[in-house]
Design a protein around this nucleic acid. Structure first.
Lengths: 141, 141
DNA sequence: CACTATTATATCGTGCACGATTTTATTTCA
DNA sequence: TGAAATAAAATCGTGCACGATATAATAGTG
C-alpha cells in the first residue's frame, strides 16, 4: 500500500487534530465568560480597535462573510457588540463594542494563562510552533 | 491593553488558521474524487485496515461519536462504506469498504503530491512541523 | 438470577465554516 | 448620465464538531 495514504504519514492530520484540541482546551475556560473560541477571537480584534467593518474582522481572522455574518449576529444577540450601517457608505456595517463587550476584557484577562496551564506546553515549544506555523501559513495563502 | 489579549500575541490562532487553510487546500483536490477532508481521513483509516468499529475509527481521528456517526452515514449513503451490526456483540457496528471504496484508493493516490504542491511547503518545514505538533498534541491530551 | 454498571452507538441542539447566490449601494466609464 | 462593473453584507444549503442525552446490549456482582 502507498505509504503516503496512511494516516501516520500525514502532516496535515496532526495540525487538524491540534486545532480541534486547542478549541477543546479553550472551551471550559471560555464557558465561564460565556463565549466560544471564534467569538473570543472577534472580541480580541475589537478590543484592539473599534469600530471595524464586517470584512475587516473577517480578513483578520481569515473567515468569509458566510461565517462572520451569523457569528456577529449571535454576538449582537448576546449584547457584546452593536451593528450600525455607515452613513458614508450604506453598504458598510460598522461593528462596535457595547459596554458589556468592553467589560468582558477584564474578565478575559485570566484566559491566556489558564490556557497555557491547561495545555501543559513549554514557552520554547510555544514560540517555535508559532514561528513555524506562521511561516507555513504565509506561504500557503 | 494587556498584550496577551491581542491577536498578534496568540499562538493558538495561527494553528487554528492553518488547520482551516489546510482543509481549504484539500477541498478542490478532494472535490475531484467527491469526498470531504474528514471523509478522506476515514478512508485512510479503512484502507489501512478493515473492518473497524465506529469507535476505533473515532479514536484514531479524535472524533467523538456525535461527529463520527453522521459522518459514516453520509459515507454509506455515498456508497463508499457499509455498516453491519456485529453478530458477536449486537452493540457494535462494523464498518467495511465497498468495492467503490476500495477503488477510490487508486484515484486518491495523487492527492498527497497535489496537496504538497498546492501548499508550497518544503520537506524540512513539513518534518519539523509534524514533529513539533505531535509533541504538543501528546502533552495536551 | 436479577440488578446495577458499563459499553457501543445513535440522536438532538447549537455553533461554526465555506461555497454559491442574492441584494443593495457605490463606482467606473463609455 | 446611465448602464455595467465592483463592492459589502446577507442568505442559503451542506457538512462538520461537540456536549448532553437516550437507547440498547453486554458484563459484572451480590
Amino acid at each position: 500500500m502507498d505509504d503516503e495514504l496512511k494516516l501516520k504519514s500525514q502532516v496535515c492530520f496532526p495540525v487538524y487534530a491540534l486545532s480541534r484540541e486547542i478549541v477543546n482546551v479553550y472551551r471550559p475556560i471560555l464557558d465561564e465568560i460565556d463565549i466560544t473560541y471564534p467569538q473570543y477571537l472577534v472580541m480580541m480584534v475589537l478590543w484592539e480597535n473599534e469600530p471595524q467593518q464586517v470584512n475587516e474582522i473577517g480578513d483578520k481572522l481569515n473567515l468569509d462573510n458566510g461565517t462572520i455574518t451569523p457569528l456577529l449576529k449571535r454576538m449582537a444577540a448576546k449584547g457584546l457588540i452593536s451593528r450600525k450601517r455607515s452613513s458614508n457608505d450604506e453598504r458598510v456595517v460598522e461593528i462596535s463594542l457595547t459596554e458589556q463587550g468592553k467589560l468582558l476584557q477584564t474578565k478575559a484577562a485570566v484566559v491566556p494563562q489558564k490556557v497555557v496551564e491547561a495545555m501543559g506546553i513549554t514557552p520554547e515549544d510555544l514560540k517555535q510552533l508559532k514561528e513555524l506555523v506562521i511561516k507555513i501559513l504565509n506561504r500557503a495563502k
